[in-house]
């Protein structure tokens, strides 16, 4: 259990828990960007941040399980999916900007033209 800062700081410094805390905070910041910002491109960057947080957690677990190379394969697949998501997502943002002249997700709330 938590017994003050003196007990936490040594585990933070390069331990498994330290990497997981960084991953969790990165995920929280990405989620906050998606929820709080209205510009689609900012929300998109928030999603990228959340994907990166998942990668940090995945590779941290791989290192503490003795350098498992399966995790690298999954990391490659995550990167491939992130690249696809970037291409299609940005194409959709450009399409929205052409039709509505905005990149604000609040202004694109109706399905009708």
């Amino acid at each position: 259990m938590m017994t003050g800062l003196d007990a936490i700081l040594p585990t933070l410094n390069g331990g498994l828990q330290g990497y997981l805390v960084v991953a969790l905070l990165l995920f929280a910041i990405g989620l906050a960007a998606v929820l709080l910002r209205r510009t689609l491109l900012m929300q998109f960057m928030g999603v990228e941040l959340m994907l990166n947080a998942a990668n940090v957690a995945l590779l941290a677990f791989a290192r503490f399980r003795g350098g498992d190379s399966q995790a690298m394969v999954f990391y490659l697949f995550i990167i491939a999916v992130a690249a696809c998501e970037a291409a299609v997502g940005l194409a959709l943002v450009i399409g929205l900007y052409r039709h509505r002249d905005t990149t604000d997700s609040d202004r694109a709330a109706s399905l009708k033209q």
């Binding site: 910002r37 209205r38 960057m45 992130a82 690249a83 970037a86 990149t103």
Partner: peptide
């Protein structure tokens, strides 16, 4: 991949769309 490809693509779209500030 991330800084070389994805972020360059994002910055490219940001500059192309010409809407740099939040509305």
């Amino acid at each position: 991949v991330y800084t070389g490809a994805i972020m360059v693509l994002v910055l490219f779209v940001i500059m192309m769309l010409n809407s740099h500030e939040e509305e």
